[in-house]
Design a protein around this nucleic acid. Structure first.
Ligand code: FES
Ligand code: FES
Lengths: 156, 156
DNA sequence: TCAAACCGGACTAATTCGGTCCGATTGGTC
DNA sequence: GACCAATCGGACCGAATTAGTCCGGTTTGA
């Protein structure tokens, strides 16, 4: 039950791309080195993000990848779904379901609530946000985090 | 990135147990059949929930398992963590971290927000809630669910 | 003492994850 | 047109995780 490396790498890749000027094309190899992500794996990931329309990729000499939209327009949810497909926190929330029970099942109702929350967080977080927060170091995120029942006020 | 069967089965098992009278001991075999969960797997799962103090298990003739607390006192979060250990939606949120980056990393900050939301949902949902919703069939949960940006008002 | 039940750990099969490899394709450059 | 630079696409592979199974051990009631 963990976010995969692919998504993590994908997001890092886009942040790295957004850090450059807008519309700049960068070699995959360069991103790979900068973020220490295996180049061939990163290639795969960018392929998927390209198909999803998040980046544009240019082949041939002088090619590379560019953001296809402004960093403020690319959400983490899009990145996630570009790479993993539709989010399904539990098997019964997937497009094709294999579980009997189904109708009137309480359990997947809760899972769906949880999933909607995750989607909401991912959906409101853009690459620009990530970049901005990345640029401002100092206080790491760890262990000051809101515990259950005391949510961190992130937006407003 | 999915909730495991073990957690799903664990929750179903407890719901099944709660459906009986309070303090009633039930055979694992019985739960297994009722919920069509492999008996030996279910045994494993109840072992872990027993160690976590969610159920009490009685061996020997006439044994079985009972809820160790009232259904209103057992949250889905407890079930989850009894079975899976501490929740970590991403590797950097785990107790022992293997990722460089760490301090000032924007990405896992977002993941932690998402995780806190999930914990909040799971933490407020008890076995009693699940049972109640399970008992009231009719409207399944599917596809009426809140989309991003329009959260379902569950508790207030 | 015997059988009913859970306990505990070792084991296994299937699936997913985290990549690698390589040939094909596309586009510049000379 | 030859050649090189880059991504594309799919096949492949090893490791880890998931989803169980098995079996001998222990506890307990009859
Ligand atoms: S329908 Fe499969 S767990 Fe609810
Ligand atoms: S510290 Fe590992 S992804 Fe943020």
């Amino acid at each position: 039950m963990q976010i995969t490396r692919a998504v993590e790498y994908g997001a890092m890749g886009l942040i790295c791309l957004a850090r450059r000027g807008p519309g700049e094309t960068v070699l995959l190899e360069e991103i790979s080195q900068e973020e220490s992500i295996p180049a061939s794996f990163l290639g795969k990931i960018f392929q998927q993000m390209s198909r999803a329309g998040l980046v544009r990729s240019i082949r041939g000499t002088g090619g590379g990848v560019t953001l296809a939209k402004a960093p403020e327009q690319i959400t983490l949810l899009e990145i996630f779904e570009a790479i993993e497909g539709p989010m399904a926190l539990q098997r019964c929330l997937a497009p094709t379901v294999t579980c009997e029970r189904q109708e009137g099942c309480a359990l997947c109702g809760v899972f769906e609530q949880a999933q909607d929350q995750v989607k909401e967080v991912f959906g409101r977080t853009t690459v620009a946000d990530l970049l901005k927060r990345h640029a401002a170091p100092g206080q790491g995120h760890r262990r000051g985090g809101a515990a259950v029942g005391k949510l961190s006020p992130v937006v407003e």
